[in-house]
């Protein structure tokens, strides 16, 4: 891997040094890095002239920011109203049981992060789960277990915790 701080320097160059660009900058950092580390937040806050305390307030206020590295694959279950009526919560419960983690957490082997999202606006195909940005219409535990198996097998370093075991 190239110098891990290089991309941050490149990103900083794209944003004028003003507080209003803090959120966009943090979003871009997360896109590259998967999460926002202490050091990168410090750089972003210095660049946009926002005190670190306020940058931290921002990063913890908005749900999409992560301060810890996520798992290799992300399963997002939509909990919009249509998905709720069609069993979205049961999917969350089922996945929680299967992966032995609560929503917002990552499995110990760093394979899966389970999260919930408040409506992805795809209500016609409820319940919806999004696995690594791919939408799964009419999701069920059966379909999701299959998908989890598929993405695990595709992983470069196949990890011990076989999710379908």
């Amino acid at each position: 891997m190239a110098d891990p701080t290089q991309y941050i320097d490149d990103l900083l160059d794209q944003y004028p040094p003003k507080p209003e660009y803090l959120i966009g900058l943090l979003q871009d950092i997360q896109e590259h890095q998967g999460h926002i580390s202490y050091d990168s937040m410090l750089l972003a806050s210095e660049h946009t002239k926002v005190p670190l305390t306020q940058a931290y307030s921002v990063a913890t206020f908005y749900q999409s920011f992560r301060l810890d590295p996520p798992g290799e694959h992300e399963i997002k279950v939509c909990l919009g109203t249509a998905c709720h009526l069609n069993g979205g919560q049961q999917l969350v419960d089922g996945l929680s049981r299967k992966l032995k983690i609560e929503p917002g957490e990552t499995t110990e082997d760093m394979m899966f992060t389970l999260s919930t999202v408040n409506c992805v606006g795809a209500c016609a195909i409820a319940p919806v789960a999004v696995v690594d940005e791919k939408y799964h219409p009419g999701a069920s535990m059966r379909k999701l277990e299959k998908e989890m198996k598929k993405v695990t097998e595709l992983s470069p370093d196949k990890i011990k915790g076989e999710p379908n075991a």
Partner: peptide, 11 residues
């Protein structure tokens, strides 16, 4: 920022 769950007009 269409946030109402079940709404996707603006999207």
């Amino acid at each position: 920022d269409e946030g109402d769950p079940g709404a996707f007009m603006d999207r």
